[in-house]
Design a binder for these strands. Structure first.
Lengths: 233, 233
DNA sequence: TCATGTCAACTAACATGTTAGTTGAGGGGG
DNA sequence: CCCCCTCAACTAACATGTTAGTTGACATGA
């Protein structure tokens, strides 16, 4: 039976801002790190006790997590951590691809020397981290690479929107173990994207980003068979 | 001073489901119809009285409207109907274009005879409505045309996601008066999209949809000068 | 006149009490 | 043995009471 390890809930003192938001961040982190397992029943009472807050901020947080599709509320009955679903992950991939491919196309058309410099620095960092087999940091540098490209679009909500539509995919990514050979391929793909941006070639940038993202979903697909317990039956 | 006409709030008895959701729908409708004007202060107390509910469902509804970017909550202070903003509208347009262009590309690749038949029927309806100058109904048929294309993608969330990212743009569209000549152009553009889907030509479908959506944003831009009172200074 | 400090009024945020829909265990009839 | 009904227990949904942060009016002094 899937379990929600309440003792692993990060203290809400680690965040600041509204209590509701801090509770939201704490629960979201627990879900994305699998401390709250897919399918686990989420009870407000114990969460209130664990965090030392009342039901209101917890209810607000759960409502936002429902919008993220990370929990499923059954009216008047119960709330569960959303099970993984390859259909949902594929939907995430479609939406993310649509948005991120448009972003990279825009970036290739409007690139600045500063963006190129930052991307170049980021890529050299990736090389180092592959060499050092520091997959934890490589993951972050990878995310930063994508964030740099989006940042160039002057669409404030772009990054947040992509995050919003990719929650199921992001959770699945956390389950993937680093495969040394693959990390190298990934950097190669990033470099292709970089070169297309550098050449101001939007069509090439589109294709490069599309291939990169489609490799990602290909790597996620085996998870359904490796961890059937986490997925919807 | 922008005003919120509470007496125009649709009775929540017109919807069904959770009270929070009904309140959400009622307020959202009021904002999108400009019964609640951009910039108007939204007070929970009067809304509770007008709808005959307590503060909880109203707070929940306002939280969702904040996620939609239709209201702005200033912590511990006040809540206002979001002012219009051409920057936001342009961001909406970027995100919607990214998603809808991907959708139509997919549709062109995976079209079925049934989709073509439905689209064709829809287009003939549009012809009739242009002829009758029934712009109210044409608006709905237009939306249905786009919905049919998205429906073909098997991405359950696609329609909801596009709606979610387009709230500011959708509100602005309500202010546009129908221009007879433009309606005809719009149907012509729709027909181009249809033809590309029929020919199973994703590249042509992309371009046709892109042009169609870029015409829309072009028509929205003058609003900022026509109605400066509704926009952010 | 204008800058600044105080304070009361107001609101969202948070806490807690109450209601009503759902669920599943147990029991009686087929 | 199985189906259906009942009902108590449980939970989310809703109502209401309380707290605390913000704001703007007003007063005070430079």
């Amino acid at each position: 039976m899937p379990k929600a390890n309440l003792e692993n809930l990060k203290s809400i003192r680690e965040f600041n801002g509204l209590l509701s938001d801090r509770v939201y961040e704490a629960i979201k982190a627990a879900i994305l790190s699998f401390d709250f397992e897919p399918g686990a029943v989420l009870k407000k009472g114990p969460i209130c006790d664990a965090l030392g807050v009342s039901r209101t901020p917890v209810s607000d947080a759960i409502m936002k997590l429902e919008a993220d599709r990370l929990v499923e509320v059954i009216p008047q009955s119960s709330t569960r951590v959303a099970k993984m679903s390859m259909k949902e992950i594929r939907e995430d991939a479609f939406l993310r691809e649509a948005l991120e491919v448009s972003a990279v196309e825009y970036a290739a058309e409007h690139r600045t020397d500063e963006l190129l410099a930052r991307l170049n620095r980021n890529l050299r960092m990736q090389d180092l981290q592959v060499e050092d087999q520091d997959y934890e940091e490589l993951f972050k540098t990878d995310q930063e690479f994508h964030r740099l490209i989006m940042g160039c679009c002057n669409i404030d909500r772009l990054h947040a929107t992509i995050g919003f539509v990719s929650n199921h995919m992001d959770r699945a990514r956390k389950l993937m173990l680093p495969i040394p050979g693959r990390s190298l391929d990934s950097v190669t793909e990033h470099r292709k994207i970089f070169e297309a941006i550098q050449k101001a070639d939007p069509a090439a940038a589109r294709v490069a980003m599309q291939q990169h993202l489609r490799h990602l979903i290909k790597r996620l697909e085996p998870l359904e068979k490796q961890r059937p317990d986490l997925f919807i039956p």
